[in-house]
Computed example of a mutant assay.
Amino acid sequence: MADEDDDDALAAEWEAMAGGEEGGDDGGEDMAAEWESMLGDEDGDDGDDMAAQMGGGSARVLNQDEIDSLLGFDDGSGAGDQSGIQAIINSSMVAYERLPMLEVVFDRLVRMMSTSLRNFTSDNVEVSLDNILSLRFGDYLNSIPLPAMLGVFKAEEWDNYGLLTVDSALIYSIVDVLLGGRRGTAAMRIEGRPYTTIERNLVERMIHVVLGDLSAAFDPLSPVTFRFERLETNPRFATIARHANAAIVAKLRIDMEDRGGRLELLIPYATLEPVRELLLQMFMGEKFGRDSIWENHLANELWQTHVNLLAVLDEQVMALGDVLNLEVGNRLVLNTSPTSPVEVRCGDVPLFKGLMGRKGDRIAIQVRDRARINEEEK
C-alpha cells in the first residue's frame, strides 16, 4: 500500500509539472501576442525599417513623408516656401544675368513718375522702387493678385511687348483722387464686380503717363517709344511671352498721403535683347575695352606707313610646260605699247591705273584713274 501511495503521489507530481509547462506555453503565446500588438500599433514602414535594421539591412528605408520633404513636394508648405531638390531646380531655372544699367533706368523712372503723377493727380505723390526680380513669365501671371488691371504695351523700335500691372488698391485710389475724393477717407472698394468704363479710362490715362516716363527714362541709353496696346483684367488674355521665358519685374509703390497701391512693370528678356549690350554696362558710356585714343593714334600712323607698289605692264597665260622650257635668250612679247595703261598694285590688290613715263633718270607712273577691284564695278 505504501508503494501504491508513493506511485500516486509521483504521478500527481508529474501531472502538476506537466500543467506548469502548459501554462508556460500559454504565457509565451501571450507574450508573442503582446509583441505583435506593439508592432501593429507602429507604422508599417517603421516596422519594416526596424526589421531591416535588426536583420542587418545595409541602409534605412525612407517613408513617403520623408521623400516628399526631400524633394520639396510637402503639401503643408506654402507655394513660395519650396525646399529640397525642387527648390534647387527652380533656382537654376531663374538664374538669369544681371543688367546693371537697367537699375539706373528704373531709378530715373521713379524720379520722373513722382513729378508726372503729381501733375496728373494734383496731389502729393511719392513713388518708390521696392525691388527688381528675375523670374519666369508663367510664374508671374500666377502670382498676380486679382482683381487687377493689366496694360499691354509695345516697344516700337524693339518690336516686342511688355506688361504693366495695376492692383485694385491703386485703381480705387486713382479713381478717388481724380474724381475729387476728400483726403483722409479711404477709397471705397466694391468687390465682386467688374471695373466700370470710367475706372478703365482713368487707369488708362495713368498708364499713358507712366509709359511716357518709361520712354524718357530709356532715352539716354537708347531711344524707344512705348505704345499702349490694350487693357485686360484677365491674366490669360495678357500673355505676351511663353510661360517659361525669362522676364524682369520692377515693383513700384505709389503713395498719395493715406491712399495708394502697387504698380508692377514686366519686361521680357526678349524685349530687351536689342539693347542687351548697353544694359550690361556698369556705367553710362562704358567702352568694353575700346580705346578711342589708340584708334586715333593708329589712324594717324597708318598715313606714314611705307608700302611697296608693283607696276604691271602686261600679263600672259602660259602652259606650265612652256614655262619650264624657257632658256636664257628667249623673248616674251608683251601685248602693250608705250601709251598702254599700267596697273599699280599693292600685293595682289589693284590700286591705280596710269601711264608710264620718265622723270629724270627714273621711270615714273602718272596716275590717271583708280583701279577696279572686280568686274562688277565696271
Rank of each mutant, 00 (worst) to 15 (best):
D7I: 12
D7S: 14
A11S: 02
E13W: 11
A16Q: 05
A32K: 05
E36N: 04
E36A: 14
G40N: 00
D45Q: 09
M50Y: 13
A51W: 09
G55S: 13
G56K: 07
R60G: 03
D65K: 06
D68A: 10
S69I: 10
G76S: 15
G78H: 12
G80P: 05
Q82F: 03
S83H: 14
Q86E: 09
A87K: 12
I88D: 07
M93E: 04
Y96L: 10
R98W: 09
L99K: 10
L102T: 10
F106C: 11
F106V: 06
D107Y: 09
R108P: 10
M112G: 15
S114Q: 15
S114H: 08
T115H: 04
T115R: 14
S116F: 03
D123W: 08
V125Y: 00
E126M: 02
N131V: 07
L133K: 06
L135N: 01
D139V: 04
Y140N: 03
Y140E: 04
L141C: 05
L141G: 05
N142V: 05
S143A: 08
I144L: 13
M149H: 00
V152I: 13
F153K: 01
D159T: 13
Y161G: 03
Y161Q: 12
G162T: 02
L163V: 01
T165E: 15
V166S: 05
S173M: 05
V177S: 12
V177D: 11
L179C: 03
L179N: 06
G180Y: 08
G180F: 04
R183N: 14
I190Y: 07
I190V: 08
G192C: 11
G192D: 08
R193Y: 02
Y195D: 04
T197R: 10
I198H: 00
N201S: 04
H208W: 04
H208G: 11
L211E: 01
L214P: 13
A217D: 15
A217T: 15
A217Y: 15
P220T: 01
R227I: 13
R227T: 12
F228L: 13
T233D: 12
N234Y: 14
F237T: 11
A238V: 07
T239I: 08
A241I: 14
H243G: 10
N245D: 15
I248D: 00
V249A: 03
K251I: 03
I254E: 02
G261S: 09
R262Q: 14
L263P: 03
L263M: 14
E264H: 00
P268M: 11
Y269S: 08
T271A: 12
P274H: 05
V275H: 00
V275A: 00
M282C: 04
F283A: 08
M284Q: 15
K287I: 00
G289C: 01
I293P: 05
E295Q: 06
L298E: 10
E301Q: 15
E301W: 09
T305Q: 06
N308A: 11
L310T: 08
L310V: 03
V312W: 11
L313F: 09
V317T: 15
A319C: 06
A319P: 07
L324A: 02
G329K: 12
L332T: 06
L332P: 06
P338K: 01
P341K: 14
V342W: 04
L351F: 11
G354M: 09
L355W: 00
R358Q: 10
G360T: 00
I363L: 06
I373A: 02
N374T: 10
E377T: 06
